[in-house]
Each structure stands twice: as C-alpha cells, then as structure tokens.
Design a protein around this nucleic acid. Sequence first.
DNA 1: TAGTTGACCGGAA
DNA 2: ATTCCGGCCAACT
Length: 85
Amino acid sequence: MKTFTDRVKDTVRKIPKGKIMTYKEVAKRAGNASASRAVGSIMKKNYELDIPCHRVIRSDGKIGEYNRGGTKQKTILLKKEGALK
DNA sequence: TAGTTGACCGGAA
DNA sequence: ATTCCGGCCAACT
C-alpha cells in the first residue's frame, strides 16, 4: 500500500518536461485533494533528483518556494524548459 | 500522544 | 492589487 507521500513523489516524477502542475493538482492526483499544503511539506524534506519539483507551482500562478536556488532559480528553470513564458 | 511548522489555498478586508 | 486569517494535511520535535 503506497502512502500519500509516495504517490505525490511518483506523480511529480511523471510530470513531462515543459509542463507545470499546481500543488493542488498533485495532491488531487495523489488521492487527497485538500493536502496541497502537505505536498509542499513533503517536497521540502524529500527532494530527490528524480523529482522535478520545480515543475510544481501554486494555484495563484505564483512560482512558490524552491530549495535549490529559491523562487528565482525555479522561474529560470521553468523558462528554460519552456513551461513558463 | 500532543503541539508546532510550512515549497499551500481561498476568501475577506 | 496587497495583506490578513482560518482551514487543511503530512512531517518533525
């Protein structure tokens, strides 16, 4: 039985290049639509290189936080991948 | 077991 | 548009 956390990691790992998902969408896909906050909490403590956490942004359209360079770096990465204009 | 924390969300002021 | 507040959930202490 996979836990919510495992599914979240799996979901984020499956996000294709140039694509973006909101924390809420990820939470929903993982099985708990209201766990958007928990998703961020999980990413923060489980940042594997297989998981492109920079492809996950907030529902407001804001970039959100990032542990490898902050919001700035996150934005740059998304731009490079073409996910963000 | 209970309390605190935070890469969030949505509504209200 | 910006700031504030309550709710929500998993991890940490």
